[in-house]
Protein backbone atom coordinates (compact mmCIF):
# COMPACT_ATOMS: atom_id res chain seq x y z
CA UNK A 1 0.00 0.00 0.00
CA UNK A 2 2.99 2.34 -0.15
CA UNK A 3 3.34 5.31 -2.52
CA UNK A 4 5.50 3.35 -4.96
CA UNK A 5 2.86 0.70 -5.37
CA UNK A 6 0.22 3.37 -5.99
CA UNK A 7 2.33 5.09 -8.67
CA UNK A 8 3.16 1.76 -10.28
CA UNK A 9 -0.46 0.63 -10.37
CA UNK A 10 -1.62 3.96 -11.76
CA UNK A 11 1.10 3.88 -14.44
CA UNK A 12 -0.06 0.38 -15.38
CA UNK A 13 -3.66 1.61 -15.75
CA UNK A 14 -2.50 4.58 -17.86
CA UNK A 15 -0.37 2.41 -20.14
CA UNK A 16 -2.88 -0.40 -20.66
CA UNK A 17 -5.74 2.07 -21.16
CA UNK A 18 -3.75 3.83 -23.85
CA UNK A 19 -2.99 0.58 -25.64
CA UNK A 20 -6.74 -0.12 -25.63
CA UNK A 21 -7.54 3.45 -26.84
CA UNK A 22 -5.22 2.94 -29.79
CA UNK A 23 -6.32 -0.64 -30.49
CA UNK A 24 -9.98 0.39 -30.40
CA UNK A 25 -9.45 2.75 -33.36
CA UNK A 26 -7.38 0.15 -35.21
CA UNK A 27 -10.04 -2.52 -34.68
CA UNK A 28 -12.78 -0.14 -35.88
CA UNK A 29 -11.15 -0.27 -39.32
CA UNK A 30 -9.60 -3.79 -39.03
CA UNK A 31 -12.29 -5.75 -37.15
CA UNK A 32 -10.92 -9.19 -38.06
CA UNK A 33 -7.22 -8.62 -37.39
CA UNK A 34 -6.35 -11.65 -35.22
CA UNK A 35 -3.12 -10.19 -33.85
CA UNK A 36 -4.92 -7.04 -32.70
CA UNK A 37 -7.76 -9.08 -31.19
CA UNK A 38 -5.29 -11.26 -29.23
CA UNK A 39 -3.45 -8.16 -28.03
CA UNK A 40 -6.77 -6.62 -26.93
CA UNK A 41 -7.67 -9.69 -24.84
CA UNK A 42 -4.23 -9.78 -23.24
CA UNK A 43 -4.10 -6.07 -22.33
CA UNK A 44 -7.73 -6.00 -21.18
CA UNK A 45 -6.95 -8.67 -18.58
CA UNK A 46 -3.96 -6.75 -17.20
CA UNK A 47 -5.95 -3.49 -17.10
CA UNK A 48 -8.93 -5.05 -15.33
CA UNK A 49 -6.70 -6.46 -12.61
CA UNK A 50 -4.84 -3.16 -12.13
CA UNK A 51 -8.11 -1.16 -11.96
CA UNK A 52 -9.58 -3.62 -9.46
CA UNK A 53 -6.52 -3.45 -7.21
CA UNK A 54 -6.18 0.35 -7.49
CA UNK A 55 -9.87 0.92 -6.76
CA UNK A 56 -9.72 -1.33 -3.71
CA UNK A 57 -6.64 0.37 -2.23
CA UNK A 58 -6.85 4.01 -3.37
CA UNK A 59 -10.38 4.77 -4.52
CA UNK A 60 -12.37 4.71 -7.74
CA UNK A 61 -11.31 5.90 -11.19
CA UNK A 62 -14.78 5.17 -12.54
CA UNK A 63 -17.95 6.50 -10.92
CA UNK A 64 -19.57 3.06 -11.19
CA UNK A 65 -16.92 1.71 -8.80
CA UNK A 66 -17.61 4.17 -5.98
CA UNK A 67 -17.89 2.28 -2.71
CA UNK A 68 -20.73 3.96 -0.82
CA UNK A 69 -20.13 3.78 2.91
CA UNK A 70 -20.75 6.66 5.32
CA UNK A 71 -20.14 9.43 2.75
CA UNK A 72 -19.89 10.14 -0.99
CA UNK A 73 -16.19 10.09 -1.96
CA UNK A 74 -16.33 10.46 -5.75
CA UNK A 75 -16.06 14.26 -5.76
CA UNK A 76 -13.13 14.39 -3.36
CA UNK A 77 -9.98 15.77 -4.99
CA UNK A 78 -7.39 16.01 -6.28
CA UNK A 79 -8.77 16.11 -9.84
CA UNK A 80 -6.68 14.84 -12.77
CA UNK A 81 -6.08 18.29 -14.32
CA UNK A 82 -4.36 19.52 -11.15
CA UNK A 83 -1.33 17.34 -11.92
CA UNK A 84 -1.19 16.06 -8.37
CA UNK A 85 -2.42 12.52 -8.79
Amino acid sequence: MDGMNRDKLFACIMATSFVMDDLRLFLDTHPKDQEALDYWRKVERVRNEAVKEYTKCYGPISMYDVDVDDRWTWAEGPWPWEGRC
Binding site: F10, S17, S62, W81
Partner: peptide, 14 residues
Protein backbone atom coordinates in the same frame (compact mmCIF):
# COMPACT_ATOMS: atom_id res chain seq x y z
CA UNK B 1 -20.44 9.20 -21.68
CA UNK B 2 -18.93 8.57 -18.28
CA UNK B 3 -15.93 10.29 -16.74
CA UNK B 4 -12.72 8.54 -15.74
CA UNK B 5 -10.70 10.25 -13.06
CA UNK B 6 -7.43 10.38 -15.02
CA UNK B 7 -5.92 12.10 -18.05
CA UNK B 8 -5.15 10.11 -21.19
CA UNK B 9 -1.47 11.07 -20.77
CA UNK B 10 0.03 12.67 -17.64
CA UNK B 11 0.33 16.47 -17.36
CA UNK B 12 2.52 17.62 -14.47
CA UNK B 13 3.89 21.15 -14.96
CA UNK B 14 5.76 22.92 -12.16
Amino acid sequence: WTYEKRLQYPVKIT
